[in-house]
């Protein structure tokens, strides 16, 4: 290989971080402006969630536990939206609930918006929002014995002992399914305190690989992982967005995801090629004095 090309490659291992950031923004933003038609292939874990939800009988309530806030909204909201949309579409009744202060409030806004797509879907008849509760352990232990007695009121301060939907779950074991969405380790508390309750969960993609042992052991009866998981569920559930195109919130992000992933892979390859080229150069010529160090030390204290 010619030394000029090697030098060029060697320089590519120290591209300024700002150019990388710009490339990232462009790759992620472009598909949001110009949509790319894409097809998502679902994983078995996603299909399993759909079968689990389909198998819940009419007279059983599904609990959607929303343990996320604005920090992980980008992933958790599509994960929650996909399942709630599916529940509304298939006339399944559900309750919203959470241990993170913002969760149930954000989920309520989301559900109200989704419910507009389906005429006749109203709060209190098709879904109820139990709101936020502190203290995971105490609340779960108490709910295992008595749900309305523990929670007392919904977010609109209605008495839950008179709520027809809550009456469907005198205790948690009577729930048709508990679907947990979170970017936290709270699902472990459910595993620990909710023996005998059918559980399924959705997590941010970071936590995905860690959840698979619970899927294999059957402790979770369906698993969605990250924005891709939401898109997969939209594919399985045969979703259509407002323009009639395939998918929903999850699908919308998949074009950006695809380009972003390609960028990361390209940069890893480039970085390694650069190191390799530099090594080749070092073997042939003695290193010059103004050699940039591989990990630039920013002595001006710049950039976080």
């Amino acid at each position: 290989m010619s030394p000029a090309l090697l030098r060029l490659l060697a320089r590519s291992r120290s591209i300024d971080r700002r150019w990388i950031a710009l490339a990232t923004v462009l790759m992620l933003a472009a598909p949001l402006i110009w949509r790319i038609p894409l097809t998502m292939v679902p994983f078995p874990a996603t299909v399993k969630l759909k079968t689990t939800i389909d198998a819940v009988p009419e007279n059983k309530l599904i609990i959607v536990a929303v343990d996320w806030d604005s920090a992980t909204k980008g992933e958790c909201q599509p994960l929650t939206a996909a399942v709630i949309d599916y529940l509304l579409k298939n006339n399944k009744k559900f309750a919203l609930f959470g241990f993170i202060p913002q969760g149930p409030e954000l989920a309520q806004r989301l559900t109200e918006e989704l419910a507009r797509k389906y005429p006749g879907k109203t709060y209190g008849k098709d879904w109820v929002n139990w709101g936020y509760r502190p203290n995971v352990m105490n609340t779960l232990i108490a709910m295992m014995n008595d749900v309305p007695g523990t929670l007392k009121t919904d977010i609109r301060k209605n008495d839950l002992s008179k709520d027809p939907l809550t009456q469907m779950v005198p205790n948690l074991k009577e729930a048709g399914l508990l679907y947990h969405v979170s970017g936290t380790a709270l699902f472990k508390s459910y595993l620990q305190f909710c023996a005998g309750v059918p559980l399924a969960n959705a997590v941010t993609a970071v936590m995905g690989p860690e959840q698979y042992p619970y899927l294999q052991s059957g402790q979770t009866k369906g698993l969605l992982v990250g924005l891709g998981g939401a898109a997969q569920f939209e594919a399985v559930g045969d979703f259509k967005d407002e323009t009639g195109a395939k998918g929903g919130e999850g699908y919308k992000g998949m074009g950006s995801q695809s380009l972003g992933h390609l960028l990361v892979m390209a940069l890893i390859v480039l970085g390694n090629l650069g190191v390799w080229a530099q090594r080749r150069l070092d073997e042939t010529t003695p290193p010059p004095d103004d050699e940039p160090s591989e990990t630039p030390i920013d002595d001006q204290g710049e950039a976080a």
Partner: peptide, 18 residues
């Protein structure tokens, strides 16, 4: 990543695999 930028020698340990 910030630590790496300021040129600190870094050592990490966590029981959590994520």
């Amino acid at each position: 990543e910030s630590g790496q930028q300021v040129g600190a020698v870094q050592i990490a340990s966590t029981p959590d695999s994520n």
